[in-house]
Design a protein around this nucleic acid. Structure first.
Lengths: 261, 261
DNA sequence: CGTTCAGTTGACCATGATCAAGAGTGGTGG
DNA sequence: CCACCACTCTTGATCATGGTCAACTGAACG
């Protein structure tokens, strides 16, 4: 079974055996374990390594001076944080372990070697970077336009599909280690309101969430509730339920209407 | 006087005369003019070119099926939209001219030539890409955590400083072509509320905004009102007022406090 | 077992949304 | 050059989504 990074990159480009070997070394060279709720990198630090998430969840966040915290992305196995290494001087945000975390540390030289020798991998890294930017855009839409119910439903959809794309779901279920407080800081809501929203989604049979385990009995219905369209994730081979989902979704509510700007 | 792209990239890396010449060709090869409020590229299109903004403002936006629109970034002279060209198959958002727009179209081959021949430029392009991602993160914070007043003040700060960094400000003033509707779609507020918020900022002497012209009499005060910290823009040589601004700002409110996560 | 943290519930409140109508302003064509 | 039309801005009245505050429950872990 390939590691998560390989799996992730192959989502985009076919890799050669040499590429796969390179990635395997990359991920096994210098691994490290970080305790839950510990910062991996803090805002203002000079980024020392690129971290590849091997196991567990991390979150990227920024805080305002008065303590308000906004989570701006999650990193799950196969994700990188961050390619800033070569370019930007200081981290403009922090990265924190959500769960106990296993990461591979990739240094400057090693990354440079890969970039020089493996064009497939380089392209795939670009792809990961652009997809993560697209996810940022979607999150702006999420907090800017969607209602509380839509935001929370959307988050569940996104994380489920991202986990699925690296093989971390079982049927309709996956691990979901976020507290309601985390979800609040992600969606720009308060924990109290997140609690009420989740109960509503539960009541409507859209999700089952207990003991950090998420089950989505009807993916299509949840996508509808979250106005979720997986296109922005740029995943090549979407699993059946999501593909069919889009078509049915459109059929259900008639032709898509877009503003002409 | 150098074109905006050169000016922008030199913000990050020193360029050679050869680099500058290359950029000059790049921007003069195939230019095009687009009318105000016309889409440059629409969601779902295969990106045909990279556009370099030479004059005017554009906006990146996504719409929900029910018509809600969220602007996710602005592009001003010197900005690129988008490096997706080589990597992603389809546009996941649209780009629309805010004003009458002058752009340079850069095709696949030409970009490839530059990337192969001019390492300085390539690095600078990476930098632009990562900065724009950092701006996305800040926008998530903006709509997720800030109040209406803070959001609007923050937007004015950001755009002013971005314009300043490409030489498009005169003293404390700059062009500001956004309608209150645009600002609403940017900040996740309604146009009515944006109107009231702007009036409040005007009353407090923080901005002068009339006939699409913005003046910021006291940058420091406006930054305070928007909880604005320019670090995320990764601009090397910030103008005096903002540099001093940060120090004074900290002095004014005591030592910065960050959550430990 | 006790302590801590996540989740839950209720009462009340406020920021910002909605709806509606009117005043400027600018662009276009006759 | 003027008249009209469309769009942007403005204002007022009312409403609702989601925030705040506070107290309590339950599970996990040492």
């Amino acid at each position: 079974m390939p590691n998560a990074l390989t799996r992730r990159l192959e989502e985009y480009t076919p890799l050669t055996d040499a590429d796969r070997a390179e990635l395997a070394t990359l991920c096994s060279q210098a691994t490290r374990t970080i305790g839950a709720r510990v910062d991996l990198i803090s805002e203002g630090d000079a980024p020392p390594y690129i971290y590849v998430i091997l196991d567990g969840w991390a979150c990227h966040y920024r805080t305002l001076d008065d303590g308000r915290r906004q989570i701006v992305d999650f990193a799950i196995p196969g994700d990188l944080c961050d390619l800033n290494l070569f370019i930007l001087d200081r981290m403009d945000h922090s990265i924190c372990a959500v769960t106990r975390l296993k990461v591979a540390e990739v240094g400057r030289e090693m990354l440079r070697r890969v970039v020089t020798n493996c064009p497939n991998i380089t392209t795939a890294l670009w792809w990961v970077e652009l997809v993560s930017k697209s996810i940022h855009r979607e999150w702006i839409v999420n907090v800017g336009q969607r209602t509380a119910r839509e935001r929370v439903a959307h988050l569940f959809c996104e994380m489920f599909i991202r986990l699925e794309s690296v093989g971390l779901t079982v049927g309709f279920s996956c691990d979901f280690p976020l507290t309601q407080n985390d979800i609040a800081d992600t969606t720009g809501l308060t924990a109290v309101h997140v609690n009420r929203t989740i109960q509503e989604l539960r009541r409507d049979g859209l999700i089952v969430l207990e003991r950090r385990k998420l089950t989505i009995p009807d993916m299509l219905a949840l996508q509808g509730a979250g106005l979720f369209n997986p296109d922005y994730l740029h995943i090549r081979r979407l699993k059946r339920h999501t593909d069919i989902g889009r078509e049915e979704q459109k059929a259900r509510r008639g032709p898509t209407q877009y503003l002409s700007c």
